[in-house]
Amino acid sequence: MKAAAPSKTNAARLLDSLGISYELRAYEVDPEDLTAISVARKIGLPPEQVFKTLLSHTNTGEYLFAVVPGDTELDLKKLAHAAGAKKAELASLKDVEPLTGYIRGGVTVMGAKKPFPAFADETIELFDIISVSAGQRGLQVLLSPADYLRASQFTLADLTKATLSGDTR
């Protein structure tokens, strides 16, 4: 289902062009708290269904998108392994907007300035509906994981750090 949005983002236009059904959900932005857990609370979804998009780069200089549940931490070693690299680290905040076209808190793979390889945590397939940034702060897109994966052409991998119990949640 499509909902009226304050403005169509590149992500929404991409989904429209692919004939993918989605819902845009606006929320109030707190510049001091851009966490996925805060966003989840504001849009009424559990944090594990709200996926955050992080820009990383490998030791060879290749940039990558990593998409992980909002209540987890990206494991850079696992990302590097999935990408076939020796090492990965988060991109500098100053590089995010010039490389993606999006500001922190609004980064999404869909409609990004450059089509970097994208990796999504394998838990994305556990849900009927997930939420990711629609490409601007204060706006999330809700859609099925299968549609998100189709729109973004991801490689699925285990990307999160294990907790003390051994569970990645």
Rank of each mutant, 00 (worst) to 15 (best):
residue 31 P to N: 08
residue 75 D to T: 01
residue 101 G to K: 05
residue 6 P to W: 14
residue 166 G to W: 01
residue 30 D to R: 10
residue 97 E to C: 09
residue 133 S to K: 07
residue 113 K to L: 14
residue 133 S to G: 12
residue 61 G to K: 14
residue 154 F to H: 12
residue 114 K to F: 09
residue 154 F to Q: 05
residue 106 G to Q: 08
residue 140 Q to H: 04
residue 93 L to C: 00
residue 87 K to N: 09
residue 145 P to A: 03
residue 123 T to Y: 07
residue 78 K to V: 00
residue 53 T to M: 03
residue 60 T to P: 04
residue 99 L to F: 07
residue 73 E to S: 14
residue 165 S to H: 06
residue 135 G to D: 13
residue 43 I to G: 05
residue 138 G to W: 12
residue 98 P to S: 06
residue 105 G to M: 03
residue 165 S to G: 05
residue 115 P to W: 01
residue 138 G to R: 05
residue 98 P to E: 08
residue 76 L to Q: 03
residue 44 G to V: 05
residue 27 Y to F: 15
residue 70 G to E: 02
residue 60 T to L: 11
residue 2 K to T: 13
residue 37 I to C: 06
residue 40 A to L: 08
residue 151 A to F: 03
residue 23 E to K: 10
residue 161 K to I: 09
residue 43 I to L: 08
residue 45 L to H: 11
residue 126 L to W: 12
residue 115 P to R: 02
residue 96 V to E: 11
residue 98 P to C: 06
residue 108 T to S: 12
residue 92 S to R: 13
residue 89 E to Y: 04
residue 131 S to I: 08
residue 77 K to F: 10
residue 148 Y to T: 01
residue 87 K to E: 15
residue 83 A to Q: 03
residue 14 L to R: 14
residue 144 S to E: 09
residue 6 P to S: 12
residue 12 A to E: 14
residue 44 G to N: 04
residue 61 G to R: 14
residue 1 M to E: 14
residue 141 V to G: 07
residue 123 T to A: 10
residue 5 A to S: 13
residue 26 A to L: 09
residue 124 I to R: 04
residue 12 A to W: 11
residue 19 G to A: 11
residue 73 E to D: 09
residue 89 E to G: 12
residue 146 A to G: 06
residue 36 A to V: 04
residue 27 Y to M: 09
residue 7 S to Y: 14
residue 64 L to W: 02
residue 153 Q to H: 13
residue 124 I to H: 01
residue 138 G to V: 12
residue 25 R to F: 12
residue 78 K to H: 00
residue 111 G to M: 10
residue 165 S to I: 02
residue 159 L to Y: 01
residue 14 L to E: 15
residue 55 L to W: 10
residue 45 L to C: 07
residue 66 A to Y: 00
residue 85 A to V: 08
residue 132 V to C: 03
residue 118 A to S: 07
residue 35 T to A: 03
residue 112 A to M: 05
residue 109 V to Q: 02
residue 121 D to T: 04
residue 21 S to E: 15
residue 22 Y to T: 06
residue 33 D to I: 03
residue 139 L to K: 04
residue 26 A to I: 13
residue 141 V to A: 11
residue 168 T to L: 14
residue 49 Q to A: 06
residue 111 G to F: 07
residue 30 D to M: 08
residue 29 V to R: 12
residue 37 I to M: 13
residue 46 P to I: 08
residue 103 I to L: 13
residue 85 A to T: 02
residue 107 V to S: 05
residue 38 S to F: 03
residue 6 P to Y: 11
residue 82 A to S: 11
residue 48 E to D: 10
residue 58 T to E: 00
residue 8 K to N: 15
residue 46 P to W: 06
residue 52 K to P: 05
residue 86 K to P: 00
residue 154 F to G: 01
residue 60 T to K: 14
residue 29 V to A: 08
residue 91 A to M: 08
residue 19 G to I: 10
residue 140 Q to P: 00
residue 97 E to D: 12
residue 100 T to Q: 05
residue 161 K to L: 14
residue 95 D to F: 00
residue 114 K to D: 00
residue 140 Q to D: 12
residue 150 R to P: 01
residue 107 V to W: 04
residue 69 P to S: 11
residue 160 T to H: 02
residue 4 A to H: 13
residue 28 E to W: 11
residue 33 D to C: 02
residue 38 S to R: 15
residue 34 L to S: 03
residue 45 L to M: 15
residue 80 A to E: 01
residue 164 L to S: 13
residue 73 E to Q: 15
residue 88 A to K: 11
residue 56 S to N: 11
residue 140 Q to T: 04
residue 143 L to V: 08
